[in-house]
Write a protein that binds this DNA or RNA. Sequence first.
DNA 1: CTGGACGTTTACGCAAACGTAAGCTATCAC
DNA 2: GTGATAGCTTACGTTTGCGTAAACGTCCAG
Lengths: 152, 152
Amino acid sequence: MSEALSMEGDIVSAMTATDEPGNKKTVFTIGELAKEFGVTLRTLRFYEDKGLINPKRDGQNRLYNRRDRARLKLVLMGKQVGFSLNEICDMLDLYDLRDGQVVQLRVALDKFNEQIDVLKQQKSHIEQAIDELSRTVEVVSGMLKQKESAER
Amino acid sequence: MSEALSMEGDIVSAMTATDEPGNKKTVFTIGELAKEFGVTLRTLRFYEDKGLINPKRDGQNRLYNRRDRARLKLVLMGKQVGFSLNEICDMLDLYDLRDGQVVQLRVALDKFNEQIDVLKQQKSHIEQAIDELSRTVEVVSGMLKQKESAER
DNA sequence: CTGGACGTTTACGCAAACGTAAGCTATCAC
DNA sequence: GTGATAGCTTACGTTTGCGTAAACGTCCAG
């Protein structure tokens, strides 16, 4: 459907990204961020309502810093691996008590492993469905051939 | 989540089931059907609203015959292989012009193949997610070990 | 001064598949 | 007669992740 244009990063690098104030841009408008990550403004505002991101304001206008941007990245990658926004929200909150503390890492690790299990179950379910449908296709194909040859 | 208790049949056998009036039961109440297939009464009424099943009435009470039962079976199996109720509805309608006609079989065949493609894409997406999460787990595990040994 | 570009808020809509009452009927057992 | 069991209809609620206006503010270019 919608191609994530600049999705070259993985979860870990997004988690461990430090705010080194190099020559990089440090502040973004909503439009810039939206374009960069291939989402709509509505989406970013929605994420804010849900407490996933908390940009500062320039008057009325939202201003996102690198930390907001990193969180957004995590949100989008969390979605990609099947987490709901609520789950992501919980994990981000945890992560926010981040001193790189052991406890949060452990919690995250558990969530990740749980999610892997969920995904594996889904995969297995899908494989069963594919098998069932494939069998059906074979049989129906056979029926069709029969009918066709009988009608001639 | 919910175990389908008597789901031993496949799609083809449900499609080709003939209404041989053997010694089998030919009429069912809503409660019987619900129990047999592990769904709620609400679900059966909902399917009726959506036009998936059309039981006759004994006064107010619904009476399902073997054909209704077969359709229900198809609905539930359609769900299992990932079709939406709307899609199932379309296919059932087609199937209702059933003289075992070639055209409907072909249409069904196409839908099945399309759905197989959809499922394969989903599967691939899930596999990617699993990979990404697995990589993440490995890295985070490593980080944890480091921290732990460092703290001691 | 007029039109874009970019931003804001509030708020209803949607799709899928039912859940969950609320309030009523009918039948059977005891 | 009283409760249990099984059924009925109507209709609002739930969840997720935004889409899609509506109606308005602001600032810059021409």
